[in-house]
């Protein structure tokens, strides 16, 4: 399996990363060589191996479903590049 420029374009779209033609070209080459490198794994037979989903030998802990934080609206909004009172501002979504 190798990756071509059109596939990289599609992945860039999925990743929400804009790429100009020059970057598309060179990143396609990088990605192709990285994929070739990781495809070494195909040499291994893993049919009877269970995937390792978690490195911790326990199920994840759930905390009690209660509010232990809050009233920090200003702090949350503080770092926003564009805001208006209680809202984050984004470019127009609905025409």
């Amino acid at each position: 399996m190798s990756i071509d420029k059109n596939q990289v374009k599609k992945v860039a779209k999925l990743s929400r990363i804009s790429l100009d033609d020059k970057n598309l070209e060179s990143l396609s080459n990088d990605l192709a060589s990285i994929l070739k490198f990781v495809e070494q794994l195909n040499k291994l037979d893993t049919n009877n191996v269970k995937p390792l989903n978690s490195i911790v030998d326990k199920s994840l802990e759930a905390r009690k479903d209660k509010v232990n934080d809050g009233k920090i609206k200003e702090e949350i909004l503080k770092n926003s590049p564009d805001k208006n009172k209680d809202f984050f501002i984004v470019p127009k979504v609905v025409e």
Binding site: I3, Q7, V8, V11, A12, L14, S15, I17, S18, L19, N23, L27, D30, L31, I34, L35
Partner: peptide, 17 residues
């Protein structure tokens, strides 16, 4: 596109793929 550097883009693209 403007905020991430080249290595980060590489890895996000590989990861998404």
């Amino acid at each position: 596109g403007e905020g991430f550097g080249r290595e980060v883009k590489r890895r996000v693209l590989i990861g998404t793929y």
